[in-house]
Write a protein that binds this DNA or RNA. Structure first.
Length: 650
RNA sequence: GCCGCUUUAGCUCAGGGGUAGAGCACAUCAUUCGUAAUGAUGGGGUCGUAGGUUCAAAUCCUACAAGCGGCACCA
């Protein structure tokens, strides 16, 4: 039997040889360092007998691939530790995740972070004991019975639901065992000590909100202490970038409980907001869009027609169409409301109304109708999160009304626009996902074929790689999702492009074709940023508050060294403002060190320092954020250069 | 919405059954200073809300709310 190693060499072994034996035959130290094998690319146990010619790679503990095994094994160690410290706790599942692992437990008494020290100590003991991992294949019914007898009902349920074709594998580590697909390392010792428990959280059994709430313990594990510390430092750094903290420190916005999920934009924050909105406005004007504004509050009849009343109502804010009473201590509404209004959760039905005014010809299409639409959605309390998840949001929304034969062109056009905008905003790295037809859908298969192919063609033409998401499309059409990753590593869906054959039908939109007959237009729902709120949150985290010059709320502060330079500083600020630069003077009676520190913390990109010398020579000493260098230039020169740098990218 | 944790001055946080503390910020005064915190003095809180226990509650108990971390949902 021939085994091909990664360096291309081929060795001959008897059938049934294990990865460990092969490693041992190469060198003793390799056998000791080995944690697993890749057999034809698939990660397996070292103890697995090999029966045929394969390509084989020994995974050593120091290899990157080992991280996943270390974390998986650490999850098992966590489970053993918890069960030994808290008898009666049921184990469920414990997978690895990016940078770590978690384990879900069922226990009447929830865990708290105060239990972590004890659990970690117990985990260390288990690792020190270093029991070997052994794999066993059990009979299905016996396994179910075994776990039921132990009171491990969740495990029993898991086994019950495994496909009959699958082996029921059990991994033992000393006296403790767990149902597990594997693979595992040679022994528990190889987990090492570079692990740490991070947080507890609730999590539904099998991700189903109608089932039991389990306690999840999150942890992280690495090859050595240095890696662990680097990761913990990275977490701290990410925390510093949190847009809620930056927003507070820079005085950009606030939230308060009387309006949860709706943002109070402060002057500096709203400057960013306006800059971004105006940039998008210029971009879409340059791409053939028209801009509209539609009502905030509309009668339920309208939402019934659009389908939102039945499909989306629990996410809507509904207002009784009754005059409220001001009677002191009385009911707010004296009469029982019979009719309702609702705040719009989406702009699309309103845009159809504008489309429907007058008769449209095929020559009018496509119509690209944009709105910075302020929408309200009644999001679950637990879902709200700073600017990232709000209840009142402003979308950079537009609906493209077009003919079926224009879908591909319009999609390509949108992808190009989106990519150009993301590039301007500093996001080069985006993931595209194509959500395909769901089981429950409207429209003919022909239309779906055409719609999905149209989007694929558009992505190909735009040169965008993408991933299919089967069954994830909206009921009315397939959609493209554009995902960005923020500084904390969370992935956010921002842009979207959705094909819709249903809404024009429901709301009876039509145009007159070349043939003189009525035809249904197709609607493309699309947004680039998604919502301004979320996108600003992402920008703040991405730039750690140090926004590009054109977006910075204050672009330049003129700071004086002495009161003698006050009037000169004010003159410089006037000059800056007349060049369209957002500038402020800092004339406070403070030392220059104090001012430099404060404006640096406020992420002001450019500081003009002026003292008696500058006033005399009509110059400024320029200091840029993140640099300690300073260079002196004449005002005219400095302002002209800065004005140029402050220009928006489009 | 579900599970857990948290809630004390504008901010960050300490304290804790006998009636409230620090640093920063703010105000006043002094200082006019050359690139990441000048000094002094002073003002500021019914300790998230509502009940309960107690001679006495900011502290203990209960409920509620909000915030945070997840889950579910989602832009």
């Amino acid at each position: 039997m021939n085994i091909t190693l990664p360096d291309g060499s081929v060795r001959t072994y008897p059938s049934g040889v294990t990865g460990l034996q092969i490693a041992d035959s190469i060198s003793k130290s390799l056998a000791k360092a080995a944690v697993g094998v890749k057999i034809d690319g698939a990660l397996s146990d070292l103890s697995l007998p090999i029966q045929k010619n394969v390509k084989l790679e020994i995974i050593r503990r120091q290899d990157d691939t080992a991280l996943e095994m270390i974390r998986h094994d650490a999850a098992h160690v966590l489970a053993e530790a918890v069960q030994s410290l808290f008898p009666g706790t049921q184990v469920t599942i414990g997978p690895t995740i990016e940078n770590g692992f978690y384990y879900d437990f069922a226990r009447n008494e929830p865990f708290s972070t105060e239990d972590f020290a004890a659990i970690e100590t117990e985990m260390q003991k288990i690792v020190e004991r270093g029991a070997p991992f052994t794999r066993e294949v059990w009979d299905r019914d016996e396994a179910i019975q075994y776990f039921k007898d132990k009171g491990e009902n969740y495990k029993a349920e898991l086994i019950q639901d495994l496909p009959v074709s699958e082996n029921i594998t059990i991994y033992r580590q000393g006296d403790w065992l767990d149902l597990c697909r594997g693979p595992h390392m040679q022994n528990v010792k190889q987990v090492g000590m570079a692990f740490k428990l991070l947080k507890v959280a609730g999590a539904y059994w099998r991700g189903d909100s109608s089932r039991a709430m389990l306690t999840r313990i999150y942890g992280t594990a690495w090859r050595d202490e240095a890696e662990l510390n680097a990761y913990l430092t990275q977490l701290e750094e990410a925390e510093k970038r949190d847009h809620r903290k930056i927003g507070k420190d820079m005085g950009l916005f606030h939230l308060q409980e009387e309006s949860q999920g709706s943002v109070f934009w402060h002057p500096h924050g709203f400057t960013i907001y306006n800059q971004l909105e105006n940039y998008i406005r210029r971009r879409i004007q340059g791409d053939g869009y028209v801009e509209v504004k539609t009502p905030q509050l509309m009668h339920s009849r309208f939402w019934e027609a659009s389908g939102h009343w039945s499909k989306f109502r629990e996410n809507m804010f509904v207002v009784p169409d009754v005059v409220p009473s001001t009677e002191e201590g009385g009911k707010v509404f004296k009469e029982e409301p019979r009719e309702f209004m609702a705040l719009k959760p989406m702009n699309c039905p309103a845009h159809v109304q504008i489309f429907k005014q007058g008769i449209k010809s095929y020559r009018d299409l496509p119509i690209r109708m944009a709105e910075f639409g302020c929408c309200h959605r009644n999001e679950a309390h637990g879902a709200l999160h700073g600017l990232m998840r709000v209840r009142q949001m402003t979308q950079d929304d537009a609906h493209i009304f077009c003919r079926v034969d224009q879908i591909t062109d319009e999609s390509i056009r949108f992808c190009n626009l989106l990519r150009a905008i993301y590039k301007d905003l500093g996001f080069e790295d985006l993931q595209v996902k194509l959500a395909l037809r769901p089981e429950n859908r409207a429209g003919t298969d022909e239309n779906w074929d055409r719609a999905e192919q149209g989007l694929r063609d558009a992505l190909d033409a735009a040169g965008l790689p993408y991933e299919d998401l089967p069954g994830e499309g909206a009921f009315y059409g397939p959609k493209l999702e554009f995902h960005l990753k923020d500084a904390i590593g969370r992935s956010w869906q921002c842009g979207t492009l959705q094909l819709d054959f249903v809404m024009p039908e429901r709301l009876d939109a039509h145009y007159i074709g070349e043939d003189g007959q009525k035809h249904r237009p197709v609607m493309l729902h699309r947004a680039v940023l998604g919502t301004l709120e979320r996108f600003i949150g992402i920008m703040l985290e991405n730039y750690a508050g140090k926004l590009p010059l054109w977006l910075a709320p204050v672009q330049c502060v003129v700071a004086t060294i002495t009161g003698k330079a006050d009037s000169y500083a004010e003159e410089v600020v006037r000059d800056l403002k007349s060049h369209g630069i957002r500038a402020e003077a800092d004339l406070r009676n403070e030392k220059i060190n104090y001012k430099v520190r404060e404006h640096s913390l406020q992420k002001v990109p450019v500081l003009f320092v002026v003292g008696a010398r500058e006033a005399e020579e009509r110059t400024v000493a320029i200091r840029r954020l993140g640099s300690q260098d300073q260079n002196v230039e004449s005002i005219a020169q400095a302002i002209e250069a800065l004005a140029h740098q402050c220009k928006a990218p489009y």
